[in-house]
C-alpha cells in the first residue's frame, strides 16, 4: 500500500504543462520493468505535454517524448512539482 501524500498523483491525472517526479509504479513487476526500460524510473523528472481525456498521454521523460496509454498512466505515481 502506498500512502498518498497530498501531491502524489497518478500520471493520468496530471494536466498539460505540469511537471513531476516519479515516485513509484503500482501494479505488476513486469509493467514496472518495462517502464523503467523507457526511462520512467523512480526520481526521474516527467513533464506532461499533451493530455486529452481518453487519449494517450504524451510525456517528456529524459528528453524523449513517450506516449502512454491512459490505463497504464493510472498506475504511474508522480509527485507534483
Amino acid at each position: 500500500m502506498i500512502k498518498m501524500e497530498n501531491n502524489i498523483i497518478p500520471l493520468a491525472f496530471m494536466a498539460s504543462g505540469e511537471r513531476g517526479e516519479i515516485v513509484g509504479i503500482r501494479g505488476g513487476q513486469r509493467m514496472a520493468k518495462r517502464l523503467y526500460g523507457m526511462g520512467l524510473t523512480p526520481n526521474s523528472l516527467v513533464e506532461v505535454i499533451v493530455s486529452n481525456p481518453a487519449g494517450p498521454i504524451l510525456i517528456n521523460i529524459r528528453g524523449s517524448r513517450v506516449a502512454i496509454g491512459r490505463g497504464m498512466a493510472m498506475k504511474i505515481l508522480v509527485r507534483r512539482l
Binding site: 493520468a12 498539460s16 486529452n52 481525456p53 481518453a54 487519449g55 496509454g69 491512459r70 490505463g71 497504464m72 493510472m74
Partner: peptide
C-alpha cells in the same frame, strides 16, 4: 485487464462531458 479498461472508459465519458461543458484555450 478490466482495471485499465474501466479507467479508459471513464475517461472517455469524461471527455464527452467536458467537451460539452468546458470552453478553454490551451
Amino acid at each position: 485487464d478490466g482495471e485499465t479498461l474501466m479507467a479508459e472508459r471513464r475517461y472517455r465519458a469524461i471527455e464527452k462531458i467536458v467537451e460539452e461543458v468546458l470552453k478553454k484555450e490551451e
